[in-house]
Write a protein that binds this DNA or RNA. Structure first.
Lengths: 209, 209, 209, 209
DNA sequence: GATGAATGAGGATTCATTCAT
DNA sequence: AATGAATGAATCCTCATTCAT
C-alpha cells in the first residue's frame, strides 16, 4: 500500500516531476518572473536537463497550463449536462471547488495567465474554452435563472461565478491573512461550499423550492 | 482648453509621470517581470534618472501601490457609513465600479499583488486595510444581510463582492474576448453595474423591499 | 543500376556517413562554430552516437580534414613529376579543378583551417604538405618559369596558383552572386579552367611556344 | 609629441576600442566562434558593457565589417579611374597591398565572411560592392587586357587579382609557415608587391611595352 | 535632475561530452 | 552500435543599480 504510493511517486517520469515543479513555480511567480533554475532545483536537476524534456521555458509553461486546464474543462463539460436539480448544482459546485482545492496551483495559474492577457489560455484551451462557456450559458438559460436574468446578463452571471470560485483560491493568501482561516482546510472549504450553495440558490432560484 | 489639458499633462511632476508609467508596466507584467527600463522608456527617461526620484524598483512599486490603493480605501471608508438605503448601496457600487474603470491598472495591480502573497499590500495598506474589511463586515451585519447570513459567512460574502467587482476588471481581456463587449466601455460598465445591483439585492435583501 | 547507387549509399558505413555530414557542416561554419548536434542530425543520429565512432569533435574534424586532404596531396604528388609539356600542365590544372569541383567542401575546409592558423593542417598533412610544396617549386624551377621568376619568387608564384585555384571555390557564393554564373556548373568550370590555362601560359611560358 | 600620440590612443572612444578588439577577435575566429567575452576582455571591459555601445554581437560584427570595408572600397573606387599607365597600376597595387598590410585583420574578415555566405558583406557594402566590381571590369576592358581577355573572362581576371591580393594576407600564417618569411614584414611586402607587378604586366600587357 | 557608461548577478539556452541502458 | 537523460561549462544577453559628469 504505502509501497505502492511510494513506488508510484518514484516512478513518476522526470517529465512529470518537471511539470509538477514548474506548476508550483509558475503559480507562485507567474511565467515572466519564474526562473527556470528554480524549477530545475525543485526537481533536483541541472537547468540544462530541462531542455531534454521541453523545448524551452515557454513550451514547459504551456504544457503545465494544458495539463492543468484539461481536467477542469473536461469536468465542467461533463457537469453541465441535461436536466438539473438543485442538488445537481450543489454537487457540481462542490466538485469544482474540491478540484481547485486539490490543485492549489491551478487557480493562480489561471489568474496569472488572465492578467498577462490570456492569449495562451485561449490558444491552448482552444477548442475547449468557448464551448464550455457556451454550455454554461445554455445551462443558465434553461434553468430558472432565465426568469430573473435576461439573456444579455447571463454571461456576467457566469463570469461572476467564475470569479467567486476561482478568486477564492487565487486569493488564498489574502483570505487566510484577513479571515484567519486556511482557505483550503476542510473547514475553509466547507464554509466556502455552503456559501456558494446559498449564493447559487439566491441568484438562481431552484425550480422546486 | 486644449492647452490647459496639455499644460497640465506637461506640468505633471516627473515623479508623477514615473508613477503613471510604472503603474502601467507593473499592471501589465507584475513586479517581478517588469523591467525598470520599460518604465523609464515610457517616461522618455534614462533608467538611471528614476533613481533620482525613487530609491529603487521596490520602493517605486510600493509608491505605485500606495497611490493606487489609498483612494479606494478612502472611498470605501467613506461609503461604508451610517444608515444605508438600497439606493445608497447601489450608488456605492456604482462609485466603486467607476473608480476601477477610471484606474484600469488598479484591479490588475491588486490581483498581481495578491497572487504574489499580498505581503506588501498588507504592509502598505497597513492601517487602512483591515479596518476597511472590518467596516464592511460591520455594515453587512447591520444590514438585512444579517437575516440571511450568519456571522461566520459575512467575510465570505464580503470577499465575494470583492471578487465580483475587482475580478471583472482584472480579467478584462478575457471578458472582452469571451463576451465580445469592451468591459470598460460605457455599455460594458452599465451592464456590470446593473448586474451588481441585482446581485446585491438578491444576496442582501434591502430593508424596504 | 539505380538500385546499385542506392545500395551503395545505404551501405556506406556509418563512419563514412558521419564524415560526409561533418565535412558539410565544418565547411559551412568552420570547426569552432559547427555544432556536433548539426552533424548528428544530418546523419539522422543521436549526437551521443557519434562518440561510438570518433573520440570527439576535434578528432572527427581531423578525420574529415585528413580524408579530404589526402587525395589532393596524392594527386598533386602524382601530377608533379617528370618532364612536363604544356598539355601536361593544362591537364594537371583541369584535374585539380575538377577535383575541387567534385569535393565542394574541400576548398572551404582548407580556407577555414588556414584562417584558424593552419596548425592542424600542418600536423595532419604532416609529411605530405611541405614535400608537395617543395615538389611544386622544383617543378617550377625546372620549367621555363625559371627564366622569368627568380628563385625567391617561386614560392609566391606557387602560392598564387593555390589562391587562384582554391579561392575560386572557397569564394563560390560571392562568385555566384557577383558574376551570376554558378561556379561549379559545367559552364563555370570550363571558363575557369580555360582562364587558368591562359594564366599559366602567360606566367610560365611553355617550352615549345 | 609622444604625449600627443598617447593622448590620442587614450582618447580613442570606448566604442572605437571595442571595434578594434572585436575586429581582432572576429578576424581570428570568425563571427560564429568568437565569444563576446573575449572581445570585452581585450578592451578590459565587462561583457555587459559592450551592450551599452552595440545592440548585440551581430550589430558589433557588422559595424566592424563596415568600418573595415568602407575605406578599401573607397580606395578602390578612387584608384580605378581615368587613363592608366603601367606605373598607375603598379602604384594602385602597392597602395592596396599596403592597406591590407596595415589592416591585418581585414583580409581575414573578408575571407571568413565570404565563407559564411557573404550575405552580410553584400548587405553592408551594399551600394559600394558591385559598383567597384563593375568599375574594375570597366578598367580592365579599357586597358590592353581587352586584347588578351574576352569580355566574359574579365570577371575571372578581376576575381583572380582579388584572390592573389587578399589571399596572400588571409593565408598569412600558412605563408609564414611554409616560406619562412613574415608576410607583413617589409621584406615580405616588397617581394609580394614586386611579384604582383610582374603578374599584372604579364597578364595585362601595359600599353607602352 | 539627467545621462552615458560601467558592472555583478542572474536570465534562458546551447554545447560537447558522459553514461546507463 | 544507438539512445535518452544528465551535466558543467559556456554562450549571448538582460537587469537593477551605481557613479562621474
Amino acid at each position: 500500500m504505502i509501497n505502492e504510493a511510494l513506488d508510484t511517486a518514484d516512478a513518476r517520469t522526470t517529465r512529470e516531476r518537471i511539470l509538477d515543479a514548474a506548476e508550483q513555480v509558475f503559480a507562485e511567480k507567474g511565467l515572466g518572473a519564474a526562473p527556470v533554475r528554480d524549477i530545475a532545483a525543485r526537481v533536483g536537476l541541472n537547468p540544462a536537463s530541462l531542455y531534454n524534456h521541453f523545448a524551452g521555458k515557454e513550451e514547459l509553461y504551456e504544457a503545465v497550463l494544458d495539463r492543468g486546464l484539461t481536467p477542469v474543462l473536461k469536468m465542467l463539460s461533463d457537469l453541465l449536462v441535461g436536466e438539473r436539480t438543485r442538488d445537481d448544482d450543489d454537487q457540481a459546485i462542490d466538485q469544482v471547488v474540491r478540484h481547485f482545492a486539490q490543485s492549489p496551483n491551478l487557480a493562480k495559474l489561471i489568474h496569472y495567465e488572465t492578467l498577462a492577457g490570456g492569449e495562451r489560455i485561449a490558444r491552448i484551451a482552444g477548442r475547449w474554452f468557448e464551448p464550455v462557456y457556451q454550455r454554461g450559458i445554455d445551462v443558465l438559460r434553461a434553468s430558472r435563472a432565465a426568469e430573473l436574468w435576461p439573456e444579455h446578463e447571463l454571461p456576467l452571471l457566469l463570469l461572476g461565478f467564475q470569479n467567486l470560485i476561482v478568486g477564492y483560491f487565487a486569493m488564498a493568501p489574502l483570505v487566510h491573512q484577513v479571515f484567519g482561516v486556511d482557505p483550503v482546510s476542510e473547514e475553509g472549504l466547507s464554509r466556502q461550499m455552503a456559501f456558494l450553495h446559498k449564493v447559487s440558490h439566491l441568484l438562481i432560484p431552484p425550480r422546486e423550492g
